[in-house]
Structure formats: structure tokens, C-alpha cells
């Protein structure tokens, strides 16, 4: 991993060349390609789940990270990695490739999402929900730290590295597993595009237009759990992409049409995540930044911008 000097032409040649017994070929095919593909998938998954959550909660500050959904996935992962690490003899690479880990992350994110969704039926206030999400995240991190305290050294190290978030630990063999989680999630999000347009007018209006709200919420719920759970399982909790990208798309396209926002979130999410990954590798140097730090630095200004405009949002 790390930086290696390869020119553009070299990369292109290597990318499309058959198997070679060279360092350069390995760098591109084993390290760079899966990494880039993973970054793209992570960007897509987090942006789309962010967009969906903002629509279903009718809340501009909703996102998988802020509402504690990523934390839920972390809990699932922690339980598997730390709780049952004995069974896997601390073989983290074996674990992280397994469907078990992904399923645990789906379950964890699904559970937090379910609770937040249930609360959101009763509590309409944006701030209450956000505070609840923060409480969830803190509660879960407390549970995780207890798990960490009781867990073995190698599992602990693997888990801590995982929490920093990285798109680099994914091997080419694991990409089909990620796709297996993300593609159904994306199909569901295309299916709800029409309803998402109407839900923006509020529940009563959506129902009066013929939408089955319960069915709609369940679809969004499954889709978001699949998307967030999958990428969190493999890459750790990656913050602020989910909240920031849909807003950037709204800013650019100045529309509320979910079809346009979904398509543009997919492209913008993929590009921004790819850029974040490139920045995190600090081109030209040997060291790497945690990807979470990069996405936070990119995303937080957007969140602050939203909060400063909140006056207007409340009026709406």
C-alpha cells in the first residue's frame, strides 16, 4: 500500500493487461483497483442512504452517521469481532470477509434505524431526533468500549483500526460481497423514488395521493440498513458523506425531484469518496490519513452551513 510512483500511462497499460509477475501489476490490481472500487461503492451507498433518511425524516440533518445508524452497524461488528473473536482465533481478515460480519452490521444498523423511525412517528422535532441519535451513538460506543475492555489484544487492535475507517482493507474477492449488499439496496431506492417525491409534502398529503406509508417506510428502512450496514462492515463508520453529498446535489441542481437527487448523489458520492481516498493517501508521501478525518473535514462545513440556514428550515 502507500504511495508508489506510477505514471498515468503505466496505470492504464497495467489495468488492461493480463496477469504479470511484476510489482507494478500487483500494485494496480491487488491494492489500487479494489481500493478505488470500494471507495466508489462506499460513496454511493452512504450518499444514497443519507438522501433517503433526509427524505423519510423530512430532516435536512439526517444521515447514517449523525443518527447513529453507523454506530449501530459498529455495534454489530464489535459483537462479532470482539465478542466472538475466540472462535475465529483473531483472524480478522477472515472475519471481515465473512457474511457474518456484514449480517451483524445490517442487524445493528437496522435496529437503531427501527428505534429512530418509531420515535420519529411521535416526535416531530428535528433537534430531539438528532439528540437521540447522538445519545444512541454515545450509548453504543460505551457498550463497545466495555467489549473492548474484555477482549483480546489482537481482536482489539483489529477493531480499533476498523473504527478509523478505511477503504484499503478490502480485497478483490470481497467486492462481490459488498456489491451483494449494495445492489439490492440501490434497487430498493430506485423503487421508492416516486413515493419519496410525494412524502416531502408530509404524511397526510402523501397518503392522500395514494401512498402506503408503512410499505414505503419499510422499503427505505431495508434499503438504508443494507447500504449503511454493508459499507460499515467493511470500511468502518465513515462520517459526513451521507449528510453532505445530498445537500451538495440539492445546491447544484436546485430541485426536490428525488430521481435527479438520487442519480446525482450516486455520482457525487462516488467522486467525493474517491477524492477523499486520494487525499487520505497523501500523494507523494509515504504516510496515510484515516479516511474518516478527510470526510469529516469535507463534510462538517456543509453541516455547519445547514445549521446556519436553520432559521429558514424551521419556517418551512
Amino acid at each position: 500500500m502507500g504511495s508508489a510512483n506510477l505514471s498515468f500511462i503505466n496505470v492504464f497499460e497495467l489495468l488492461f493487461s493480463p496477469y504479470q509477475q511484476s510489482v507494478e501489476w500487483f500494485t494496480v490490481h491487488i491494492f489500487r483497483l479494489p481500493r478505488a472500487v470500494t471507495a466508489i461503492l462506499v460513496g454511493i451507498a452512504l450518499s444514497v442512504s443519507g438522501l433517503q433518511m433526509q427524505t423519510v425524516f423530512r430532516n435536512p440533518l439526517a444521515g447514517p452517521y449523525v443518527l447513529g445508524i453507523s454506530s449501530g452497524a459498529s455495534l454489530g461488528v464489535a459483537l462479532v469481532v470482539l465478542g466472538f473473536s475466540g472462535y475465529f482465533a483473531g483472524n480478522v481478515f477472515f472475519i471481515s470477509g465473512s457474511w457474518l460480519l456484514v449480517a451483524a452490521a445490517w442487524l445493528g444498523s437496522g435496529m437503531v434505524l427501527l428505534v429512530i423511525l418509531l420515535v420519529s412517528f411521535r416526535v416531530r422535532d428535528i433537534m430531539t431526533l438528532l439528540i437521540l441519535g447522538i445519545m444512541f451513538a454515545s450509548g453504543i460506543s460505551a457498550v463497545i468500549s466495555i467489549l473492548q475492555y474484555f477482549s483480546g489484544e489482537s481482536a482489539l487492535k483489529a477493531f480499533v483500526i476498523w473504527t478509523m475507517g478505511s477503504v484499503s482493507n478490502v480485497s478483490i474477492e470481497q467486492i462481490p460481497v459488498i456489491l451483494g449488499g449494495i445492489i439490492p439496496g440501490l434497487i430498493l431506492s430506485v423503487m421508492v423514488v416516486k413515493s419519496s417525491n410525494a412524502v416531502q409534502l408530509g404524511e397526510s398529503h402523501a397518503k392522500s395521493l395514494g401512498i402506503n406509508i408503512l410499505r414505503y417506510r419499510i422499503l427505505i428502512f431495508i434499503s438504508t440498513s443494507l447500504l449503511t450496514g454493508t459499507v460499515t462492515a467493511f470500511c468502518g463508520p465513515i462520517g459526513f458523506i451521507g449528510i453532505a453529498v445530498p445537500h451538495i446535489c440539492r445546491m447544484i441542481f436546485k430541485t426536490s425531484r428525488q430521481g435527479i437527487l438520487l442519480a446525482s448523489s450516486i455520482f457525487a458520492g462516488a467522486s467525493i469518496m474517491l477524492i477523499s481516498d486520494i487525499v487520505s493517501q497523501l500523494p507523494g508521501s509515504e504516510s496515510m490519513l484515516p479516511i474518516n478525518a478527510v470526510t469529516s473535514l469535507l463534510g462538517i462545513p456543509v453541516v455547519i452551513w445547514i445549521i446556519l440556514r436553520k432559521q429558514k428550515l424551521i419556517a418551512a
Binding site: 423530512r58 435536512p60 417525491n197 416531502q200 409534502l201 408530509g202 398529503h205 440539492r250 436546485k254 430541485t255 426536490s256 425531484r257 429558514k312 428550515l313 418551512a316
Partner: peptide, 10 residues
């Protein structure tokens, strides 16, 4: 209720 970026035509 509406989203901030929604236009009249939308």
C-alpha cells in the same frame, strides 16, 4: 410541509 428546494412546478 415541503422541502426547501421544491419549486412551485414540482
Amino acid at each position: 410541509e415541503y422541502t426547501e428546494t421544491m419549486t412551485v412546478r414540482e
